[in-house]
Design a binder for these strands. Structure first.
Lengths: 225, 225
DNA sequence: GCGATTTTCAAGTATTCTATTAATTGCTTA
DNA sequence: TAAGCAATTAATAGAATACTTGAAAATCGC
């Protein structure tokens, strides 16, 4: 075997490590969870519906492909994505899947029973309004995820607290809610609740990584009260 | 199991199909080959050092993940990438690998014995000159790959023909050569040959997909003589 | 040292992957 | 319509790997 072949074989073998890491559904789910916020093992286990030992194994696999890192905080071990590029890569994977795999489209169509998809306002128009500052952006994910990273300028109103805090929202402005991304329905819920109270509310099915890819800045840290 | 879990499981299972498709070194290599040009099975087999039957299996796997498509042309079956997004995705995979896997860096460093890496001119500067039209861009890949897609305005001078055609190149202009990408050394060879004849030649270690990602337009079709 | 959390281990089962040879299919073209 | 070529499929075999789980062990803060 000549040098060049050996070189290619080795390079592709290395690249395949990443492919192997993302060839398991559960590991993809873990990466998605981690792209919202860093998490201790136990939480990951419960979010992904796996045993702790099992998650630990999957995390080990992800770690050996250098896609995640861990850090001990107190008694827990927190995992996080090793780099923002990981989230960007998984986003590409998801986009490719949505483009090429009709099954995904089908699934999403069947599962989404929400009303926002009949919105008369399309995504581009909403984004334009957000860019112009005409609309208020609402992050309805749990506060922890908001703290980890959110669209710059967005308000944090976790879905669970929406009812209680709805009176503080500006009734005269358009509201654009987002959550974890296209497969997450928290923002749909939020919009329905808001509309019931006569707010002009819309959903954007984007996660923070998607916002970022569209050129929006992200921030981290708590909301200023 | 509730609806949401079922939905997630199914979605991630679908996305993992793509992960599985790119979890094999040989399939990654095949995709890379196809990102240069569409090819019949037999050629793929010889380029990737595999048996025809084996390539056929791998192609089947890629096809079932909708990453490649095939078309019968005459007596042969030509395979091609199902969409430019596939090449873009594999590029992201490669970039992530280069960022995260030190092994790849190491390998490339060991394998590259060329001199161009000591170039005093860096990539950004070269790109600037190309954008300004100050430099001639040379595509040194086989003509077939040039025909499939090349950087707009680039000259096709396959490495094998370089010696014969060297006299037609402009001696007074800077020459920037490229080939299949970072792991391909044809452009290195070309630059060395050109410099031996006193041309001011440089290498850019970019493949067409990389050029495209940098905002350069691609063209296809034969060179105008 | 206690306790909580996480990792490792061992085991079992199942599955999967890759590559090869041989046979077959399906086209093209003579 | 038959010959010839390219590609696919089948059958096989062995290796390798993967996933999960329950129990034990390690780690580390307190």
């Amino acid at each position: 075997m000549n040098d060049e072949r050996l070189f290619k074989d080795t390079i592709y073998e290395q690249l395949a490590r990443i492919g192997k890491a993302v060839s398991s559904p559960k590991r993809l789910e873990l990466i998605d969870i981690l792209s919202q916020s860093s998490r201790p093992v136990e939480t990951l286990a419960s979010l992904a519906d796996l045993s702790v030992a099992n998650v630990s194994q999957h995390l080990k696999a992800l770690k050996s492909a250098r896609l995640v890192e861990s850090e001990k905080v107190g008694v827990q071990v927190f995992y996080r994505l090793a780099s923002p590029s990981v989230a960007a890569f998984i986003r590409e994977l998801r986009l490719l899947g949505e483009e090429r795999l009709a099954e995904i489209d089908q699934l999403v169509r069947e599962y989404r029973t929400d009303t926002t998809r009949f919105d008369p306002v399309d995504r581009d128009e909403l984004l334009r309004r957000v860019r112009r500052g005409e609309a208020v952006v609402l992050d309805v994910r749990p506060e922890e995820e908001y703290r980890h990273a959110h669209v710059a300028g967005a308000l944090s109103v976790p879905l669970r607290e929406l009812e209680a805090r709805i009176k503080d929202l500006p009734a005269d402005r358009e509201i654009v809610a987002y959550c974890r991304g296209a497969y997450c329905l928290m923002a749909v819920d939020a919009v329905e609740k808001l509309r019931a109270r006569n707010f002009r509310a819309f959903r954007l099915d984007l996660g923070v990584t998607d916002w970022q890819a569209l050129g929006f800045a992200l921030e981290s840290g708590s909301a200023t009260p």
